[in-house]
């Protein structure tokens, strides 16, 4: 190996080393709060971590008992179910409506198509804060305050979801759709048997992004469903976190930990899909 080559190799290693250092630093910054949460929850009772700082949990039992207390003695479990229903219904509805609309927009021509699509895309540029009050008024008019449909329905027509699915379905070859038509498939059957299964990847991506978004949605449930029976996890955690809550810090942390658990699991399972999805949509949902 010549000296020049050696210098290049050394440089490569240095680069790689630096990259790793940076990546590890970022990872520590990102993981630390979650780890701290675990740390606080699974600490011996009566020995607050803040007074006695350390980086490892000390008592599994006390953490579990806190979790049990929260699940049994507060409305947390119900909020869990509400939020799961909220997320699942939103995902299902959005996929159904979005894929049907995308099917028409992507594969067929109809009068006014461009203008309609343009309008929908325009709505992507309007921030949520602007629409949240009119939407609230509309939902209130419908008498849907404090109902599941009030939570779910306004979130179904997703311009972003439509955009994602249209972009994907546009890549389906026209001749394949025509072949299906010649095979005697009706309009709906082409959608059902051809377009839908072939859009699976895009739909999974959209489902994942939607899950993350609905699970973490705070503002909308807060204003549209203020009744405790239909609190979402976000709202319940909000109560724990409130300045005048009577809970000690470890209980608050337990509530927070329970709230991040589902998206965290979700993320670990679908990690690759999520990264793909974000790359595909060029957005973080």
């Amino acid at each position: 190996m010549s000296a020049a080559n050696r210098a290049i190799v050394a440089e490569l290693y240095t680069w790689r080393f630096l990259k790793w250092v940076v990546a590890i630093c970022v990872a520590i910054v990102a993981v630390f709060p979650i780890w701290w949460m675990v740390n606080v929850v699974f600490a011996d009772p009566g020995v607050p971590v803040s007074i006695n700082p350390r980086l490892y949990p000390t008592s599994l039992g006390s953490g579990l008992s806190k979790i049990q207390t929260i699940l049994t003695e507060t409305a947390y479990l119900r909020a869990y179910f509400v939020t799961i229903a909220y997320a699942l219904l939103t995902i299902l509805g959005m996929l159904l409506i979005g894929s049907m609309a995308a099917f028409e927009f992507a594969l067929f021509d109809f009068p006014g198509k461009r203008i309609l699509f343009g309008l929908v895309m325009l709505s992507l540029m309007v921030p949520t804060v602007v629409t949240i009050i009119p939407t609230y008024l509309l939902v209130a008019d419908l008498g849907w305050l404090n109902t599941m449909q009030g939570l779910v329905v306004p979130g179904l027509a997703s311009a972003f979801g439509l955009f994602l699915l249209v972009q994907f379905m546009r890549t389906l070859p026209r001749e394949m759709i025509e072949a299906a038509r010649l095979d005697g498939a009706s309009h709906f059957k082409i959608y059902w048997y051809i377009a839908l299964p072939l859009s699976r990847n895009a739909m999974v991506t959209l489902a994942i992004l939607t899950f993350m978004k609905t699970w973490g949605n705070f503002a909308w449930p807060l204003i549209v469903a203020p009744k405790p029976e239909i609190y979402t996890v976000g709202q319940v955690v909000g109560l724990f976190n409130a300045p005048f809550s009577h809970q000690t810090v470890d209980v608050v942390m337990t509530a927070n930990l329970l709230a991040v658990l589902p998206p965290l699991l979700f993320f670990l399972i679908f990690q690759r899909k999520i990264v793909e999805g974000i790359a595909m949509s060029g957005s973080k949902g």
């Binding site: 001749e175 095979d183 498939a185 059957k189």
Partner: peptide, 26 residues
């Protein structure tokens, strides 16, 4: 009439048998 396309236009998510039987299924 039955048409055979230049791009084949097979349904990628179906097996050969399903591709061939799709018209009958419909």
């Amino acid at each position: 009439t039955a048409m055979v396309f230049q791009s084949y236009a097979l349904y990628p998510h179906m097996t050969v048998a399903e591709n061939m039987g799709f018209g009958l299924k419909m």
